[in-house]
Design a protein around this nucleic acid. Structure first.
Lengths: 345, 345
DNA sequence: TTGTACGCGTTATCAT
DNA sequence: ATGATAACGCGTACAA
């Protein structure tokens, strides 16, 4: 099989390579007729420009990377889908890479940027604990989307972020449960280390309890297992079982991610506890699946599509130097469904 | 910021570029001390070889593509994860691309192969209706994994495939339901066009009914909506509602994909039907989530990890010319859970 | 064992 | 408007 190159096309059309290049790239300085002729030949011979050669030469490689930490979390699926769409619109290539739990996302980013000559990076999920120095080395703009809080010591002018106020929205959820009359509220929290999302949501939980004069009971704080991937249904299931085995009484269970809540729902069911009659259950994120469980799960819906769109747009704008780094915080929406009811008292 | 190239490293170390190249690529003809010195400099200056330049030069680009049709289907998530792992082991880059429902996967494949100089392709999902001629143009080996049946007119020597026998396993599931006493079995089927997976599973359903002398009732065959993405929970939910509205009586519902079954479970619940007491529900695929629903869903488990591993290995072996094209068919495993019970009387 | 020089396919600069 | 030619960063044949 013969793979034509730009030279072959040029030869076939009896023109120079630069003319073919101009035709491909919609360059203005070209005779419409010549362009027509060239495009015909390209179609006929099935010529497709070699991406490597292009990126090697081009300063602007028209590609970004999306680095996802925690692929197990279904919350990201929609996010990625939307980002992908936006990239296609802008005719940007999107390099999707999953970061293992033990990998350092900035190291991976650094490698990928150099390897592929990317123009920007989107970090999805994970937590944030990197030095500003290391980040600067990346040398391309990056946006943190739905990542835990970034430490204060990093200049906010050095990066962009897209997220909900995890701590506040988490507090809102717990306040909603308190409003229903619950005082013994257990929490299921993943990777509550450092400045992760889990930690923030746990803090929101504590805030809400404190401001209502409810004692924070350490035994009601259930850390998910580290060996399992955070935010998986399995983890939610097993952790809830552990929580129940402890025997501590509670009337509401708040899982800091919907995937955990779905696993929890099953564990509660197996323990003979009815939701919401015996235990109210709440999640966080707002993934589709919470609509289809029985009972459907009350959750804090993050505006995924909007966030994904804005993430991509923001990155492109920064690349095009249309804007400076920004920090956008979205409002989550309390989606009350069937899994929560009055209780406690 | 300064991005060192191979030249810079060579200059710094006082050696030629080829020596650096040899060091990077674990070439044998190099003095261990020289290599040591070079590797140190590479670490110190943070040198990362430019992938574009490498691929431009190399004949073997060390990269494959995975083209997924139907990202909404959670069944693929695990598959992709496993394939990704295997690629990393072999130090191959993996290009993941989602194919829209209206896109032609072979066209996309063709474009991607030329753009990125790939060594092989994995097609995940979707159906198969392409001419052999077009496939040959791809010019790199490809493996169809969990794709519907490939038309007879294409030589089986021209491609590899990995799948379960969708028709037979589907029949097995229906036979299991019949064995429980069900005779009025409704089916929820997505994209029953051409040689798709949906069609095959529908045929298996018909086979089982026929061989047990049960009349095939067209009204019990519920096509999911075309506008929605196939294999989504939403589609399962809405289609089941439509089915129920028709008023046709049935005691078992078989959804040809677990994602559909999960949506169906909810629709049945809303209609006041108990599963499995009033209606038995069965799915297909064996995604994790079926363990966590209430009730858990009886399903045909495809050996995902094994299939994904073999898919990748097979492709690599073909690339390395270690083997010819193969067609591997796996046994699915009937996973009986809580959603099915005796019925029909 | 090591270094020099060429070419991969493309875009960009400069003439024409 | 068009064509020749120099890079881009790397791997490799070949010479040393």
């Amino acid at each position: 099989m013969f793979e034509p190159t730009i030279k072959d096309i040029a030869h076939i059309c009896g023109v120079g390579v630069s003319t073919v290049s101009r035709a491909i790239n919609d360059h203005p300085d070209i005779n419409p007729e010549t362009k027509e002729k060239i495009m015909d030949a390209i179609r006929e011979y099935g010529y497709v420009p070699n991406d490597s050669a292009r990126n090697l030469k081009r300063v602007d490689a028209k590609a970004i990377a999306v680095l996802v930490k925690g692929i197990a979390n279904p919350f990201f699926t929609n996010m990625i889908k939307t980002i992908e769409k936006e990239c296609k619109k802008k005719r940007y290539a999107m390099e999707l890479s999953h970061i293992e739990a033990d990998e350092d996302e900035v190291d991976v980013a650094q490698k990928v940027v150099k390897e592929k000559r990317l123009r920007g990076i989107i970090f999805l999920g994970g937590l944030f604990s990197h030095s500003e120095e290391k980040l600067k080395k990346l040398n391309v703009p990056f946006v943190f989307s739905t990542v835990g809080a970034i430490p204060e010591n990093i200049s906010r002018k050095a990066y962009s972020s897209i997220s909900v106020d995890d701590r506040r929205e988490s507090a809102r959820m717990v306040e909603y449960l308190i409003g229903l009359g619950h005082t013994k509220i257990a929490i299921l929290v993943a990777e509550a280390q450092e400045e992760s999302i889990g930690k923030l949501r746990l803090e929101g939980y504590c805030d809400a309890l404190r401001s209502h004069g409810i004692t924070i009971e350490p035994k009601l704080i259930c850390q998910t297992q580290d060996e399992l991937s955070h935010f998986s249904m399995e983890n939610g299931y097993l952790s809830t079982r552990r929580l129940l085995e402890r025997g501590e009484a509670f009337t509401a269970l708040y899982a800091v991610a919907d995937a955990l809540a779905i696993g929890a729902l099953r564990a509660l069911y197996e323990a003979g506890l009815r939701v919401p009659q015996d235990i109210s259950l709440a999640g966080f994120d707002g993934i589709d699946m919470t609509d289809y469980t029985v009972p459907s799960i009350t959750t804090m819906r993050q505006p995924v599509e909007e966030m994904a769109k804005d993430t991509t747009r923001l990155l492109f704008d920064i690349i095009a130097k249309k804007t400076k780094h920004q920090h956008i915080v979205y409002d989550a929406e309390l989606a009350v469904k069937e899994s929560t009811a009055c209780g406690g008292s």
